[in-house]
């Protein structure tokens, strides 16, 4: 005991194993704040500043035009159709991949990621090639009054292609981690496959699903490249919010362009707020689901 010296005064402060030195900590915080500031906050603020450059009235007036109204309506409609469909496809794909063993599984996972690696413009061109008036299928559809390209179905197809991976990508790791044991347990307790899906599988993935759906939604509303190619950008008809913004900007109508951009940004922010609110409200369940 004699070699332990008791020092009087402030008790020693221990640093936890994962804690960095103060200098490193501040450097990292500074880098994070700077990065966020330059890449996220500054542009976001700039959009709103530009939108309101000629006052609130001018900004609102530009949003009240028929073209702007139609663009907002179209974008919301596209999201309302493509996001639920992609949610269903995503859940089905993730379920199929994680709950069954089959050959070519790795290939299928790669295939799901394809939209991420293919440029959206190329994706749009593929749809034009397949369904355009000059193609076999497209010609027949147009002749029978169901045009795909330069019309709503084409925009939905393009949006769905680009946003397809979001839901499945969120779900696959979660479902792999959770394994099949709970589903098997439910089966041994007499539940049908359908019941197992609704009472065990879906509740277990609901947070990942919600997250995937929100990401998918944000991207669906913001998609530009693929939609620009397939939609033809007909004002008041097939021009979505992002394509309208670009056209307005090209015509030096900066208040109109930035006002619409501000609305698009606000829609994205609402999505994020929704997610945060849900996370706060269900924090205990989230923790329980992760701790297991």
């Amino acid at each position: 005991m004699s070699d332990i010296t008791v020092t009087k005064g402030a008790p020693p402060r221990f640093r936890s194993a994962t804690e960095e030195s103060p200098l490193a900590r501040w450097a990292m915080i500074a880098a994070a704040v700077l990065g966020l500031g330059i890449l996220v906050f500054a542009p976001l603020i700039a959009v709103f500043v530009e939108a309101l450059a000629q006052g609130v009235a001018a900004s609102l007036a530009s949003l009240a035009t028929r073209d702007a109204q139609e663009a907002i309506k179209l974008t919301l409609t596209i999201a309302a159709i493509s996001v639920p469909l992609n949610a269903i496809f995503g859940v089905a794909a993730a379920w199929f991949i994680t709950k069954f063993d089959f050959r070519g599984k790795a290939f299928l996972i790669t295939l799901i990621d394809l939209p991420f690696s293919v440029s959206p413009v190329v994706a749009g061109l593929c749809i034009v090639l397949m369904f355009g008036t000059n193609s076999l299928v497209g010609g027949w559809l147009v002749a029978n009054g169901y045009p795909i390209v330069f019309a709503m179905p084409g925009i939905i197809l393009a949006t769905m292609f680009v946003t397809f991976p979001f839901v499945a990508r969120e779900l696959i790791p979660v479902m792999i981690e959770q394994g099949r044991a709970e589903e098997e347990a439910a089966l041994t307790l007499g539940a049908s496959g359908w019941r197992v899906f609704w009472t065990v599988t879906l509740p277990n993935i609901r947070w990942a699903l919600l997250y995937g759906v929100l990401l998918c939604n944000a991207r669906a509303m913001g998609e530009f490249g693929a939609v620009a190619v397939v939609s033809g950008k007909i004002r008041g008809q097939t021009a979505t919010m992002p394509t309208t913004i670009e056209m307005l900007y090209q015509e030096y109508l900066s208040v109109a362009a930035f006002s619409l951009a501000a609305v698009l940004a606000l829609l994205a922010l609402v999505t994020l707020l929704l997610k945060t609110a849900l996370e706060i409200r269900h924090a205990d369940q989230l923790a329980a689901a992760h701790r297991h």
Binding site: A181, E182, E184, A185, A186, L187, T188, G190, A191, S192, T199, V200, N204, A288, A289, H292
Partner: peptide, 16 residues
């Protein structure tokens, strides 16, 4: 389902 076997899994597999 029709076997009606009470099965206890190695990791218990309780519905979390």
């Amino acid at each position: 389902q029709d076997r009606r076997a009470g099965f206890v899994f190695q990791s218990y597999a309780l519905f979390r």
